[in-house]
């Protein structure tokens, strides 16, 4: 591989990784901090993507703006889903993890079927000034849609890191999985804390879902290919670390991108899990876990 091709792949990989980061951050909270096995996370992102498609059809809105607006109803969706999960599974203890996994698998499946019924199986996309154009820097062409996705991803990461470290509820979200009883002894209701945390995680998914349709057209089954990637990133990062999640996402993006332009391109889909297995074997707390 010549150098120019390698640099090209590296840059494309960083942009792809930024987008992966946006998709993974909500899960870093829901699974990494709150211990909720939320495999419907990419399915929710896809709902956000179709939400952006609808908002453009109805009001002609920019997809990223739609994502911001959708964050509010998605917060409510997150609160509702967590409340249901807590009442039916989590509160009953012991095998909540496994049964919760089945529950969220069901939620993801239902979301997919609803999308098929409403939109059919054809691909849907959106229009925006930054889609279909590229920033040309000398030899390199950087697609604006990827630059926007990465930029928004960094903004989500920054907002989330600030929220987790600077607000009382954010700190409590970090604490609740470490010791919920101790948290209640400080005057916080652990269930309420988790409800808000899950709501915020789901709100962020609305925005990252909008990025999904900015990056490329969407179809109802698209969420499935992201489940493995986002879980790999969150576990790779060390559960619940925002900065770690972004770095792990960038790492995965770069490795996938470099492999895609190599002779072993067909192995690319195996990268996420290969990396995950290697890290879990060598450093079980994740790359950036403390």
């Amino acid at each position: 591989m010549d150098l120019e091709l390698l640099i090209d792949a590296l840059v494309a990989g960083l942009l792809l990784g930024g987008f992966y980061g946006a998709l993974s951050l909500g899960l870093a909270i829901a699974f990494g901090l709150l211990d909720v096995p939320h495999i419907a996370h990419p399915a929710f992102a896809l709902l956000g993507a179709y939400g952006a498609v609808l908002m453009q059809g109805w009001f002609g809105l920019d997809p990223v703006l739609s994502g911001l607006i959708l964050a509010l109803p998605f917060y409510a969706l997150g609160v509702a889903v967590y409340s249901f999960y807590h009442t039916t599974f989590e509160r009953r203890g012991t095998d909540a993890g496994l049964r919760g996994l089945a529950f969220f698998f069901g939620v993801a499946f239902v979301a997919e079927v609803i999308l098929i019924l409403l939109f059919g199986i054809d691909q849907r996309g959106v229009r925006a000034p930054y889609i279909g154009r590229a920033l040309v820097l000398g030899e390199f062409r950087l697609p604006w849609r990827m630059l926007v996705a990465s930029g928004v991803a960094l903004a989500i990461a920054g907002a989330m890191a600030l929220w987790l470290s600077r607000t009382y509820v954010g700190r409590a979200v970090q604490a609740v999985a470490q010791d919920a009883t101790a948290l209640s002894l400080l005057g916080a209701d652990p269930v309420r804390v988790k409800r808000i945390g899950f709501g915020i995680a789901t709100a962020s998914v609305a925005l990252s879902g909008a990025l999904l349709v900015v990056v490329g057209p969407v179809e109802p089954g698209l969420a499935r290919i992201y489940i493995g990637k986002v879980f790999a990133i969150v576990v790779l990062a060390g559960l619940g670390s925002v900065g770690g999640t972004v770095l792990a996402a960038l790492l995965l993006g770069v490795i996938e991108s470099v492999m895609l332009s190599s002779p072993v391109a067909s192995w690319t889909p195996a990268v996420a899990f290969g990396l995950l297995l290697a890290v879990l074997g060598l450093r079980p707390q994740g790359l950036f876990g403390r």
């Binding site: 009382y168 700190r171 409590a172 970090q174 604490a175 470490q178 010791d179 101790a182 948290l183 400080l186 916080a188 403390r290």
Partner: peptide, 12 residues
């Protein structure tokens, strides 16, 4: 909270 700093523990 073992993975939070001393200060974060107190602030909580």
């Amino acid at each position: 909270f073992p993975r939070l700093s001393v200060e974060e523990n107190l602030v909580l």
